[in-house]
Design a binder for these strands. Structure first.
Lengths: 351, 351
DNA sequence: ACAATACCTTAAATCGGTTCAAATTCATGG
DNA sequence: CCATGAATTTGAACCGATTTAAGGTATTGT
């Protein structure tokens, strides 16, 4: 077995309390003793048992991060941000994937509570799901930060400002002279899609573009949803849109594929804008213009906020909601010059 | 504060030992008592403190996963696989990013050891780094699995069989009738690059293609490294290769960009094959043929192996090395028909 | 030389579980 | 009704740290 504090104490000829004092460099222990104990700790490569420590201190130095699927670049970048901040604070991050399944989300939260993590960052399931487990967290004053709104629950939140992002994207298309601008929605459950729709509409309104209901098509989050939507645009009677704003990048790529297959050129005939900028856009031959989510920053800020909440024991503050700015990443699919895309901002760092 | 086992015991009018028995459904506790205690546990929503449990049992139910950068699709998919298996086993996964920095790798491992994680899965820094911290793990018989070899350390390992993957890719190019096949290496530190080079050479040899040293170019892991390499191919005196096998997908995309900019068509003039299949390839207009790493499976198998190691306390088995098969993912960049790529195998699930 | 003070160190309780030998209760048969 | 053994339950030690009141030593002032 590993050394314990008692072993060190015995070797050093002091009490466990003194060794503990050394470890947490309490000012009461004399320099002489401290040095001696420290030397012994080093010599025997003693590593305090954080589990025992956690039990005594009633805090674990662990936080839980629950996302839908860590292999999604958006979430993995958030995770990177979270881990970055937590690492600096000496916290470790436990990751759980809900796989968009309610049971798993609940199971993860329950397990993490049993593990007494100091706090949670959760990207929750949305619309329509039973959210009592989240409501419970609030009731128990368990520190947590959400990465997406849950209707009916007021809680600390960090997310991108979708509406403004969508507004900017749409406005950009309008400024480019596009008149028939479509929007392909995300899955019904995604509140973000509604917000993006709102931003899109606001931009149309501001610039007196008459909104055409036929240009708003129900989509999804996958490439094939976009492809499908593209087909729909093509097959309907009205004239095809000359610009499409999409729920996310995958959808954008799908719709482009549908267009290109039918001889419709991007960006000449139709401009396309995606959302997220989750890794792919920069790699396309015709770089994808997209609304970049500040994913890493979302991770960082949510972690920072969580740390605050953890520090503020028994806080009575009202929940804070943080909306981070998106950034319109302009590439070729809405008419940037080719040159612009060669300078890739963020490359994937493959092993 | 949360309920403790003592509270439950008092309410149920039994001893803590009995409640403990109920929790771990020991056969010695009577059904009657068990039901009664269970009802109380449920009523008061009691959640046993896993920290206290970990202290008593000397096992935490935690495992550590150290990768270079979780936002890299390859690693995040590995993480997904790890979490999947661990979830089924009731283990939680702590993630640490080393950011390719030795200090961070060491710091993470040390912290995780203090946290008494039951085991570690590590994608270590390679060539040239001080690896004493890994050697120590072995000396201490701490259960761990590596995801990349470390010269001089025999340890449990799970990785893709790069050499065979590279061999297959190269052979595929040869079978396509390509004669002047190039290879763009990865960073010097990557052992995987050497293995891929070996596989490439083996394929050339088998098919009596005379290897040309000029066709092997030093690259890297980023798009711009590939772009650079592409330029080199173009500017050198020999005739340009008619096929290029690349260290990874980013490099492949970079080299393609360099070619296309100079009017060289892919795949007509030059075929390109990447490595990893880390998310991007399927999204390109001309889908990238690539050697797909079984990333999820690497995660799963390494976790399974780690669980074995944890179970086998004091094992004396020799380390097992598992080499998982790659899969040549054929898309357009080496001449597949367009149709093939539209059916995307794995889409990104953007929120 | 002695009291007062400052400075260190320690013993013992505590955190919330598990474990197991010993004690208690229960059921069975003579 | 009691002995016997099986079935349950329990008390107390333990896991490895922190904490704090109390005890011990050294230092200072008079």
């Amino acid at each position: 077995m590993a050394m314990t504090i008692a072993d060190i104490a015995k070797i050093a000829g002091v009490s466990r309390a003194t060794v503990s004092g050394v470890l947490n460099n309490s000012p009461t222990v004399s320099v002489k003793t401290k040095d001696r104990v420290l030397a012994i700790i080093k010599k025997y490569d003693y590593r305090p048992n954080e589990i025992a420590r956690a039990l005594a201190l009633n805090q674990t130095g662990l936080i839980g991060l629950i996302v839908k699927d860590i292999s999604n670049p958006l979430y993995s970048e958030i995770a990177l941000g979270v881990e970055d901040v937590c690492g600096q604070e000496g916290l470790s991050v436990i990751i759980g994937n809900s796989h968009k399944e309610w049971d798993r989300e609940v199971a993860h939260i329950n397990l993490l509570k049993r593990r007494r993590v100091d706090g949670l960052i959760i990207f929750p399931l949305q619309k329509g799901a039973d959210v009592r487990h989240i409501a419970d967290l609030k009731k128990e004053k368990y520190p947590f930060v959400l990465l997406a709104e849950i209707p009916g629950i007021e809680a600390d939140l960090v997310r991108a400002d979708d509406k403004v992002g969508a507004f900017q994207a749409t406005e950009h298309l309008i400024n480019l002279g596009r008149k028939r601008i479509g929007y392909i929605t995300g899955p019904q459950s995604a509140l973000a899609s509604d917000r993006r729709l709102a931003g899109y509409r606001k931009a149309l309104k501001k610039h007196d573009v008459i909104p055409n209901k036929e240009y708003v098509i129900r989509g999804g989050w996958r490439l094939k949803d976009g492809y499908q939507a593209g087909k729909e645009f093509l097959s309907c009677k009205m004239s095809c849109p000359d610009a499409v704003f999409c729920y996310n990048d995958s959808v954008a790529i799908g719709v482009m594929r549908a267009f290109v297959e039918n001889g419709i050129r991007v960006p000449q005939d139709v401009a396309v804008v995606g959302f997220d900028d989750a890794g792919v856009g920069a790699y396309l031959e015709t770089g994808l213009t997209t609304v970049a989510q500040p994913a890493m920053e979302i991770g960082r800020r949510s972690a920072i906020r969580l740390v605050e909440l953890i520090r503020l024991k028994n806080n009575t503050q009202r929940p804070k909601k943080l909306f981070l700015q998106t950034k319109l990443q302009i590439r070729e699919t809405c008419g940037a010059n080719k040159k612009g895309s060669v300078s890739v901002q963020k490359q994937m760092n493959n092993s």
